[in-house]
Amino acid sequence: MSTDVITRGGETRGLVQASGAMFLVGTLAGVAGAIRDYPLYGGQALRYLLASAVLLAVARLAGLRFLRLTLKETALLVALSITGLVIFNVCVIEATGHGGPALVGTVLGTVPLALALLDGRPSPRVVGAAAVVVAGATVATGLGSGDMTGLLWSLGALVCEVCFSLLALPLLPRLGAVRVSAYSAALAVPMLVVIGLTVDGAAMLRVPTPAEAAGLGYQSIIVTTVAFFLWYDALPRLGPGRAGLFAGLIPVGAIATGAVLGLGAPSAADLAGAALVVAGIVIGLRVSRTRQAPPGTDGGSVPQRSPELALLGDAPQHDREE
């Protein structure tokens, strides 16, 4: 099999994973309403406890041994957990309560532009495409819903979403997508427990209603376990600028979830915005046929790995158990 075929396959995998991950993240805003009355910090602690247990089990079954972290890696993981997991979800839940999924989706729709501008040397094409995606996200969800408090919470979620990607990039080459997802989720649990005990005391946990249990389970398995792995495996393959374009699918996921849950049918503006989002992604991912990627690379992504490692897109062979 030629190198070009391998790299194209790796890039295609990254595109599919990035789109799926961001769509699933978008569903969080709609599902958040189902757990609005459950103690916030206790619920999120349960969510990440279950997610980390599942991810660590997957790592074990895949033969990925525990790696001793350096001081830098530990600091990055702690910062990632605090911003991208703990504070992000608090912001989303609070913003949803003040402005609904539309406002959160609109603000998070600006993630492509933020990542494109922060991606070292972003090309004009990627920056322009990101602007189109942002415009589509804004049209789809419509600014003006909610209040100033909701907008501030949404802006907090935006900053945390950017940190979720940028803080993970230095960790992924050695730890891989499964370990970064598992370790960051596990680190979030004690943080949330401490905050929950401080704020809510013994009331931080209670038996959830069936709807709350379903919402927490969905957040844990789908939005955390699945989406985290998909995103972290796609991120080094595409780079933050190109991968960030798919954050434009966050409001699309929010709109779709709202429609499924009976929170409102898509309007003409929703559909027009979604079309702009797709157009921006296509523009950003369009690769000139006159510019070929160097051998062994994926258009600027990491080198492709052997087939036996491709199952989880994870760590190099010396990091696995014999």
Rank of each mutant, 00 (worst) to 15 (best):
G146D: 15
T224C: 14
G156D: 10
A227Q: 07
R237F: 07
D200M: 01
A256P: 07
G176W: 05
G215L: 01
S184I: 07
R174K: 02
P208Y: 07
C163S: 15
G253E: 08
F246I: 03
P170H: 04
G244E: 03
G144P: 11
L238H: 10
L169I: 11
M191E: 09
V260N: 07
I250M: 11
A168Q: 10
L235V: 05
M191S: 01
T198M: 13
L216Y: 02
R179M: 12
A203L: 08
T225Y: 09
V223P: 04
I255F: 13
L172R: 04
A202T: 14
L245C: 03
G156A: 03
L152P: 04
P190C: 00
M191K: 00
L238P: 09
V260S: 07
L197K: 02
R242N: 13
L155C: 02
P190Q: 01
L187I: 14
V159D: 08
A243M: 15
A177H: 05
L172T: 08
A243Q: 15
G262K: 05
M148A: 15
T225N: 09
G244T: 06
G144F: 00
T257I: 08
G241N: 14
A185R: 06
G258P: 09
T225L: 15
V199S: 02
I250T: 07
G217A: 09
L245W: 00
A213M: 12
L263R: 12
A265Q: 10
V178F: 05
Y183H: 11
R237T: 14
V162M: 02
G201C: 01
Y232Q: 06
L216V: 05
A243R: 12
A182R: 10
G262F: 07
V162A: 02
I221V: 15
L263T: 09
D200E: 14
V252I: 14
G176N: 03
D200I: 01
E212Q: 12
G144I: 05
A227K: 03
V178E: 04
A168G: 13
V199Y: 03
S165Q: 12
I255C: 14
S154R: 00
P170I: 05
P208N: 10
G253A: 07
L230K: 04
G196Q: 11
G144M: 11
A211G: 05
E161N: 13
W153T: 00
S184G: 07
A168W: 06
I250E: 08
A243P: 12
V159A: 14
